[in-house]
Simulated assay, not measured.
Amino acid sequence: MSSDTITELARLGSATVYEAGGRRGYVDLDLHQIVPGSRAAGPARTVRCGQGDNLMVHAAMAALAPGDVLVLTMPEPAPVALVGDLLATQAQVRGAAAVLVDAAVRDVEELREMGLPIWARWVRVHGAAKDVSGALDVPVAVGGATIRPGDVLVLDADGVAVVEAERVDEVLAASQERERKEAVKRAKLQAGALSYELDGLRERVEGAAP
């Protein structure tokens, strides 16, 4: 997929992409957006670490390609820091678009100064071991959403939406159309119209007129 497609999905944002994509692929977690105001999109580079272990995060750095969204998981989510500033430095140098951590991160002030977009379930000082071999580029589950290698993630202040790789063009077109329709509707609302009327909601509340 083209860089223009990825840039446009990031601009449209997770909420628009999620809604336009049929409300599929929602990462249902209260995530820490480490860098306020950041947004990103890109194909997933998935990592399944050993429990409480980040050996595979180090291994993933050797496989990371520019533009990838690094997705870090364990068999069971736990508040163990899989990423700190040194691993984040490697990810940034290798061109990662973003990092999604279904565990913890630490060195948060340093991560914010770096500016690499990172979303994490927890912030904790508790560090990981480096003993257990896991797996790279395998399907993982994060917040109820299945993420396969190459699926596209859209991340911003609202959260994370997952778009299956084979649906990217379809969802992009639907998201752009949704944006156009919302622009028309917004103009009407700014002119004084009510969604209660525009969306036919009055009838749901008050019933059809006799």
Results as ranks from 00 to 15, higher is better:
residue 80 V to W: 14
residue 62 A to H: 11
residue 103 A to D: 02
residue 102 D to K: 02
residue 40 A to M: 04
residue 180 R to T: 10
residue 49 C to I: 00
residue 30 D to I: 06
residue 15 A to W: 10
residue 154 V to E: 03
residue 29 L to E: 15
residue 134 G to C: 04
residue 125 V to H: 14
residue 102 D to F: 03
residue 76 E to V: 03
residue 164 E to D: 08
residue 34 I to G: 15
residue 123 V to G: 10
residue 131 D to H: 06
residue 83 V to K: 13
residue 4 D to T: 11
residue 73 T to Y: 09
residue 68 D to G: 07
residue 191 A to I: 00
residue 92 Q to E: 14
residue 122 W to C: 07
residue 52 G to V: 00
residue 13 G to E: 01
residue 26 Y to P: 00
residue 168 V to E: 03
residue 27 V to P: 13
residue 160 V to E: 09
residue 139 P to D: 12
residue 40 A to D: 06
residue 117 P to K: 04
residue 16 T to E: 02
residue 184 V to H: 06
residue 57 V to M: 08
residue 75 P to F: 08
residue 48 R to K: 13
residue 71 V to N: 03
residue 96 A to Q: 00
residue 155 L to M: 15
residue 103 A to P: 00
residue 69 V to P: 05
residue 138 V to G: 15
residue 55 L to R: 12
residue 140 V to R: 01
residue 180 R to D: 10
residue 114 M to Q: 15
residue 164 E to G: 04
residue 182 E to I: 10
residue 153 L to M: 11
residue 14 S to D: 07
residue 28 D to R: 15
residue 34 I to Q: 15
residue 40 A to W: 03
residue 85 D to G: 11
residue 157 A to Q: 13
residue 139 P to R: 01
residue 159 G to V: 00
residue 59 A to T: 03
residue 180 R to V: 11
residue 37 G to S: 11
residue 153 L to R: 12
residue 106 R to P: 05
residue 30 D to Y: 10
residue 126 H to T: 11
residue 133 S to I: 13
residue 41 A to D: 02
residue 3 S to L: 14
residue 121 R to F: 06
residue 22 G to M: 03
residue 175 S to A: 13
residue 204 R to K: 03
residue 162 V to Q: 15
residue 121 R to C: 04
residue 14 S to T: 05
residue 204 R to Q: 05
residue 184 V to K: 05
residue 11 R to W: 04
residue 206 E to Q: 09
residue 99 V to R: 15
residue 180 R to A: 14
residue 196 Y to V: 01
residue 93 V to S: 03
residue 60 A to P: 14
